[in-house]
Design a protein around this nucleic acid. Sequence first.
DNA 1: GCCGAACCGTAACGTACGGTACGCATCAGG
DNA 2: CCTGATGCGTACCGTACGTTACGGTTCGGC
Lengths: 217, 217
Amino acid sequence: MLQAGADIDTSETLTERQQAVLDAALRLLVEEGDNLTMTAVARRASCSKETLYKWFGDRDGLLTATVQWQASKVRVTPVDRKGLDLASLTASLERFASDWLKVISSDTSIALNRVAVGHAGSGKDDLGAIVLQNGRFALARRLKPVLEAGRQAGLLDFEDAEMAFRTFFGLVGRDVQIRLLLGDRVELTEAAIGGDARRATQQFLALFGANNRLQSL
Amino acid sequence: MLQAGADIDTSETLTERQQAVLDAALRLLVEEGDNLTMTAVARRASCSKETLYKWFGDRDGLLTATVQWQASKVRVTPVDRKGLDLASLTASLERFASDWLKVISSDTSIALNRVAVGHAGSGKDDLGAIVLQNGRFALARRLKPVLEAGRQAGLLDFEDAEMAFRTFFGLVGRDVQIRLLLGDRVELTEAAIGGDARRATQQFLALFGANNRLQSL
DNA sequence: GCCGAACCGTAACGTACGGTACGCATCAGG
DNA sequence: CCTGATGCGTACCGTACGTTACGGTTCGGC
């Protein structure tokens, strides 16, 4: 497990102007990838390099601030756990699946994951940890209550929620993320995402729905 | 789809010495990541920088040559398609799964994927395409005949082999690769890999085995 | 033994970029 | 109006690294 606390709410301590600067940096990151320069960020944000350094310390500080800033934008939408039946559970799962696919196929997510992966080797910063916390682990934190509720309602049957989540994760994502990160053009229209979400959900229910004898896998 | 022909057999045109140089570059790539320098490669390989440039053109050329060299090392092991029963099919699938998990969790695979992902944004070279061809797509090419044989033997039931393969891919890999690439320490002992391979195979058979009414998903 | 090619080691060049310093404009508070 | 703080624009410095150049060495062919 990675270090905790990597998903602090940064929107408190950032002024309006600083957020604008980070937005500019984010756009530049999407366009240029990791080879964006401090001068380019300063020019794009119409601020001076000195300000960048005063606010964010150094280049890595700016990068982490940018990643955290983007992470703080997507907030958790809690799920109601009352009156759960198969239809609403299915809808919840499909919604999670399609949201997730939309996220990982977005330009900013691809760019952010690219730089985080690139930086993961040399332990200079924690970009990988931050992205992981606000991506894969945040999804798990949001989805697990739904799974637990499904189990308590007698709709799902599994031993370990973590294991069930990881299976769902695999059924939804499959090879999409790695292909996108490696530059493959995956056709992900709105319709395709919807279809994938339905398929993954049905497969998940086939594996972990109650009345199936497969939960021991 | 990416451009074809990215997996040419390079072992023909490379001299013994050049292969040694690329091996050195590969080791350095695993240690240093993308921030390895030409001087470091020259020193590690006990050759001159001039030779590096004569042989590989420039830094990107050296990198692509290194990636292709590593790719050319893992050759395809064909599968016998005669006398297929459920036991042998299961064994084949488990073997693929465990081999794949072993590959993506290896140091060199992680390092190669990291630099390929990092370079994928700026279209300077085709590292992403090469890695994809010799990773995800090579696996598909090797596995699909097995799936087809399983279908012809009446053991599997699916419409689209590509779709079935992608599901298997997702069930095996789940979140492992992205976590590893992002620097998460995933415990992948020999035993864990074996267990994951068995679980994924059973799940796949539950979804796509004959006598199940789930193939329309 | 001699020649040229290939190659090693290293020094040198050019440049891109991270980081810093400084001058000037704006503006809030007194 | 004065003053200090904040921040923009820009020039500047240091350095790391890709790339090139060059002298010295090994070695196969004649």
